[in-house]
């Protein structure tokens, strides 16, 4: 039985986004790599505003660097890194990860 489905989106910029969906078609994780960051508003959907709020709460510690961001909440993890022309990151909702899927082992 397939534990998840993967869908690849190629942006015009060259940025590659991979969406991972559970058998009941819920996207539980995304990863990205490329010269620009992805459209997080579209990709995170209902989690975009919680992401913004979490990032805002830690913004002051990033005043000395905007090359990485780590949001780690019970139901939303966002890890982003990079600089212009080379960005990478991932986001996932722990409660939506299908049983038996290891988030760090996603291809």
């Amino acid at each position: 039985m397939q534990q998840y489905a993967m869908h690849v989106i190629s942006a015009a910029s060259g940025t590659i986004v991979r969406e991972y969906a559970s058998p009941d078609d819920k996207v539980f994780a995304i990863t990205w790599q490329g010269p620009t960051p992805p459209d997080l508003r579209t990709l995170l959907g209902e989690y975009f505003t919680p992401y913004l709020n979490a990032a805002a709460s830690t913004a002051q510690t990033r005043a000395g660097s905007h090359r990485q961001l780590s949001v780690s909440q019970p139901d939303l993890v966002v890890q982003a890194a990079g600089h212009a022309r080379s960005f990478r990151g991932r986001a996932f909702v722990p409660s939506l990860i299908p049983a038996g899927v290891l988030i760090d082992a996603l291809p």
């Binding site: 990863t31 790599q33 990485q68 780590s70 890890q79 982003a80 890194a81 990478r88 990151g89 991932r90 760090d104 082992a105 996603l106 291809p107």
Partner: peptide, 8 residues
């Protein structure tokens, strides 16, 4: 820390 994208 930096993000971990081991598969990449």
């Amino acid at each position: 820390t930096a993000s971990t994208i081991t598969w990449l």
